[in-house]
Design a protein around this nucleic acid. Sequence first.
RNA 1: GAGAUUGUAGCUCAGUUGGUUAGAGCGCUAGUUUGUGGCACUAGAGGUCGGGGGUUCGAGACCCCUCAUUCUCCCCA
Length: 456
Amino acid sequence: MAKVNVSIPQGTRDFNAETVRKRNYIFNTIRKVFEIYGFQPLETPSMENLDTLMGKYGEEGDKLIFKILNNGLDNPDKHTLVKAEFEKVLEGKNNKNITERALRYDLTIPFARYVAMNHGQLTFPFKRYQIQPVWRADRPQKGRYREFYQCDADVVGSNSLLNEVELTNIYATVFRKLEIEVEIRINSRKILAALAELCGGADKMMDITIAIDKLDKIGLDKVKDELIQRGLTNDQIIIIEKYLSIDGSNEDKLTSIASLFGTNELGNKGLEEIKHILSNFTTKETKLTIDFTLARGLNYYTGTIFEIKAIGVQMGSIGGGGRYDDLTGLFGVPNIPGVGISFGVDRIYDVMEELKLFPEAVQSGTKVLFFNLGDSESKAAFGLMQQLREQDIACEMYHENAKFDKQFKYAEKKNIPYIIILGSKELEENNCVVKHLTTSTQQTVSMSTLIDYVFL
RNA sequence: GAGAUUGUAGCUCAGUUGGUUAGAGCGCUAGUUUGUGGCACUAGAGGUCGGGGGUUCGAGACCCCUCAUUCUCCCCA
């Protein structure tokens, strides 16, 4: 046998029929909910100009953007230029003469770019959903791929908290439909900013959030170590420790933090928003939890932030999002606030696989296999098959006249529930035998009434 | 970017302190069985032991390099 020596790039995958069907089940569920909430689809190119993406995801994010090498670098006329410019790349700088395009890193920034380009034509508030792959040059590991799908829903052009409420309900609805038990965690960048203000250094917000975000992973002591490393004073750390010690039910947390914040304006604004979302959230069977340690790495968020944690499995967040005041401002169109959420399909798939949540019915392929029992027999069978196909019944015919054994085994392997036998005897009598393989029962049906046969 | 892990048949994996011709289960092909599958039995095909180099009389096993996998940290969906 020939030795196969090909592979696919690290962190990418092929999807077989079974996997595609399961993935489509997830896509369709999410898409349907998006549509029901009044969002409309958008697709953007796989690649963007590098400038559009760079600097939007933080320093780490920039490193994870897949850059595309320009074409025509081998043009002899440009060799001197290209070599000189490549030196700059080696210094870690991006250079248009070497790379000017990159693969999409997420769906939010391309959306902001789209809104900035088309704001004159759009009706606001503009609600769009987008289901497309994104690419990250990350080291693959559990639940982490270099090519994966995101399903985003965003509303731009509105400051209303109704949007947050709607998006929270979308999360709850989708995961209820998929039967995944989740906890929706919310927080607000305003609350984090207020904490930074209380510590006397609004400029320290990034340092504080990065450190406290790790609380559940590394524990309080190490968070404190990191805060010291990041240059915070003892007094400041005492305040942060108080903040981190807030626990209990949503109500308890709100009470505790209100006393910590006192009259801090920004903090109270954030709290009011959180309260509003909590009190208007209608899908009561899903947990909606305040998590004051939730920070999220993307630095464009300014208000409410969300993250989804699946219960009962060890997996990073399977969804996230938040409010951003001025994302299009990055592209020269200010004053269009927005809020959005994202579903991580590949992680959702992994969670559902682990918890065995995919319904059996997802795997519905061919329903009927017509046996091939000779030239004139298969010709008659072919006619019948086309009739069934007209009725939207998925059929196929065995590709050649082979022994029963083979044809049966083919049906079994492909999980085809029905087979139809049309041999010389049936041809003569103008009928065929319909056999249900799962129950091992069969009946003779006349050719003219096969079209009325009910295949379950 | 840092660290660890695994790599043997199509798949899942054995393979003793280094020792003759590398095994099992499942799957595959054929037959028992030219119009009724799943079961059983019989026979058969299929392996550069990830790749390269080294140590040795002798390497699937030990050493070095390399590629790939999976996982952890960082960060994220």
